[in-house]
Design a protein around this nucleic acid. Sequence first.
RNA 1: GGCCCUAUCGUCUAACGGUUAGGACAUCAGAUUUUCAAUCUGGUAAUCAGGGUUCGAUUCCCUGUAGGGUCACCA
Length: 522
Amino acid sequence: MTPKKEENLMIRTRFAPSPTGPLHVGGVRTALFNYLFSKKNKGDFILRIEDTDTERSKKEWEYELIKDFEWLGINWDEGPALQDQQEINFKDYELGYVGQHAPYRQSERKDLYRKYLQQLIDEDKAYYCFCTREEVEAQKQNLMSLGEPPVYRGKCRDLTRKEAEECLSQGKNSVIRFRCPMNQKINITDLVYGKIEFNSDILGDFVIAKDLDSPLYNFVVVVDDHEMEISHVIRGEEHLSNTPKQIMLIKALDLKQPTYAHLPLILGTDRKKLSKRTGETSIAKYAEEGYLPEAMINFIAFLGWNPGTEKEIYTLVDLINDFSIEKIQKAGAIFNIEKLDWINGYYIRKKSIKELTDLLIPYLERAGLIEKRSFTSYLIKATGEEFGRDKLEMIISLYHERLKKLSEIIELVDLFFVSDLSYERELLQWKQMTKEELIDSLRTAIKILNDITDKDFVKEKLEAALMPVAEKMPNRGNLLWPLRVALTGKKNSAGPMEVAEALGKEKTLKRLEKAIELVSRD
RNA sequence: GGCCCUAUCGUCUAACGGUUAGGACAUCAGAUUUUCAAUCUGGUAAUCAGGGUUCGAUUCCCUGUAGGGUCACCA
């Protein structure tokens, strides 16, 4: 049992979420930094499920959380493991574990906690408290109004063991409090914030368990981090004020203190801790919106960290290579969605059309625009037409550079999947064109396009036929703008030739006729 | 209120105590365009305030100010 030297040097980090809701982007950042730090140092990254709060913890959130990390491409060396690699759904969800310290779910480690809890009680370092919540709350309010630290200074501290046992046997409601030593200096050397000193007086006798079988956060975290041999605790700054409590427990239990690194908060636009009030916080929602995992990783990594160079496009692997804890910022960082959009657009542009198409098909299907027919063919739901994968890729390529997030594809390409366009006739008009000029322009376009065979109905050929005529007009827009609007029904879109090609000759001409009809109508 | 943390363009940030305070996003202008996007070029824009220390502070120290976190039988 004597620890080997290598074990002491081993870097082991953990992310310890509680499955009480959707995974928060702040949680992702914490997990990411733990992951990067461990991988950078050839160490292990552990995922531990903190589900001691049985009221709020749900298996379903745990499942979602694991799926989210799978999506992000962050994996762990120890922790819950999906039973098989297959696509699973929540109904079939069952956990196995990988790693030497299983189980990794706190609800399954009760025996362990009880042992440590009992030890503290036996050594009189913890005691039963029978005060009611109301009493404690009133006391706290009173102390706050006096400007004193709002800590527990109750009477149960001095109960003899016998008195306590008596109350217990009477079935009185109780909690277990840590007998926190007074007037002790607690020094933390935080890897991000440096030296921080607390005085133990501000802690009071905090509650460490509801009963022997229901330990609470500050206690279990200490036990588990020790049992799992965590070397570095990297977590959000909101935990900084919990750290002295945990250190006091570590001392009482005579355990080894891990190294701490607290991460600055991710802020909303109101400069407060990011919350639903000021922006979307759930990583799954970002995935749904069509942000790419590599963009999320890249963006989140740069919230409170930078490599110190001007490079800012980073893959997960690059991040592992260049990550260093010294470069972590001390001040909170606002979650700047504009920059995220830019990074996401960048990664979208880096995708091949094939990859992008694969990513986009589910969005088109969900929007009810298309339906998959076979491996390479699809159905336009509005018209019943069948078309091939190559056509789909062609359409998507037109919008490759215009996409900031995947979900935007719908409003961009819907024009290819509807039978009738609807738009205001004013939109057809380019600059100061009269109604007659407009009709004339559309007729010209029809005439030119009609002469082109189906086979030659491709961008280059269309350009060759249309452009010379357009050049002769007072302004190219006189011909091209009405044509483009007639085909797309939109103020902004891809160019008219490529849209015409994607539409095909028949639909192109039909839409031009419709446009003339629309303009002529009185 | 107690304790703790923080402070450079609007935002994310760079700068051995010596730089015309740099970059990116956003924004503005120009180029390119039938529109939008993409791309290229250029511009606007910051050291919270006051004291020290120093030949010299964005940088070190103090005070103030402003923001934030936390004070659960949640994590």
